[in-house]
Design a protein around this nucleic acid. Structure first.
Lengths: 193, 193
DNA sequence: TGGCAATGCGGCAAAGTGTCGCAGGGCAAC
DNA sequence: GTTGCCCTGCGACACTTTGCCGCATTGCCA
């Protein structure tokens, strides 16, 4: 258990040393992600909304960006072409709470590199940049098999919960289940498959 | 209630008269879709796998195509660049049983126009072609609200069931629930939201 | 300091689920 | 034909989960 095999603090990857802009309206998530990415050797910049992001992109030589879809003001989807207009070489990964195939497609069409659903940690984000740069047509066969009902339910719960900033009561309302029930479900293990 | 407003048989759309290639290994679904599209004024061609699709694309002036991801032999994802190499103007919509964001992104990267999950009828497919041709970022904010747990479960069940060709026993196995339970769930109403 | 909302947890009736079994239908091999 | 296999629908029953109550505690904000 030496520090050698600790992916938390030592990440090879091509991203090391690059400058990344993190756009998210949730301050806690933003700071947490920034800190984690900083620990992996990236230099980080933060923006809470459309205008801040544009301003920072104009004045800093950012190379990577993560963009939250849902923000007060103009949505993250609109930010993608805007950022690309400023810096055409920018690699953008969309990071969203509750993701849908429709918005994922939109994001890719608009020039995003990849699309990640919360909850996502720094490693997920970095992996998304790498996968986005890899040549396409890699998808594993595992993508072709449907998850079990329990698994699908758990994933959906996690997404909505992340989208509610961890607020169980709010998530329960959105999910249309009783708070007590959600609470009990969360106490269970994540189903394997 | 005149026949005027019957979308089943009278569809305006720009697709009318075009030649569409339907690639799907499930003969029943393929024929059904072909018939429905034919009724809407398209001329249809059918293929059951990679090789048949390539052959038909070579010898026919197809303008549109729907491609199933999962087929015996080479998967539909690989078919996309192959078809585009033969006919660069071809507009391809991916039609898949159980869809994931990952494969949707791959499909778009590979040049597909859009991505539709089964169960999908002819109108869904035509709508996908139209949406794919529309400029991005027009619509869609409605995608931002999470479906209820019951709704999400129902949608997942429908996808897997479609993927199993309507075979309830098989779907139950894949979903990890008892056949009797699936049977009971299917007897319920589709949840509204 | 008093609302207000969120959290965790106990308990209980109601609803849902797993697991039997049985009868019937379609289909391919013998 | 008939044997075997798998699918389907449905009834019954024990067991689990859910909805819904309550209560105590915590954090926030005016």
């Amino acid at each position: 258990m030496s520090s050698l095999d600790n992916p938390q603090t030592e990440m090879p990857g091509e991203a090391t040393g690059k400058c990344i802009l993190i756009v998210d309206d949730d301050e806690r998530l933003r700071d947490q992600l920034a800190r984690a990415l900083g620990r992996r050797g990236l230099s980080t910049l933060k923006a809470a909304n459309f205008d801040e992001a544009v301003e920072i992109a104009r004045t800093n030589a950012v190379e990577l960006a993560t963009v939250d879809l849902r923000m007060p003001g103009r949505p993250g989807l609109e930010l993608i072409p805007e950022l690309l207009a400023i810096r055409p070489e920018l690699q953008i990964v969309v990071l969203t709470g509750y993701g849908s195939i429709a918005t994922a497609i939109e994001a890719i069409r608009l020039g995003a590199l990849n699309y990640v659903q919360k909850p996502a940690d720094a490693d997920d984000v970095l992996a998304a940049f790498e996968k986005g740069n890899a040549p396409p047509l890699a998808p594993a066969e595992s993508d072709y098999v449907a998850p079990s009902l329990a698994r699908a339910e758990w994933e959906h719960i996690q997404r909505v919960l992340a989208d509610c900033g961890g607020n169980i009561s709010e998530a329960a309302r959105r999910l249309g289940v009783h708070r007590r029930t959600l609470q009990r479900k969360l106490g269970q293990f994540p189903p394997k498959a």
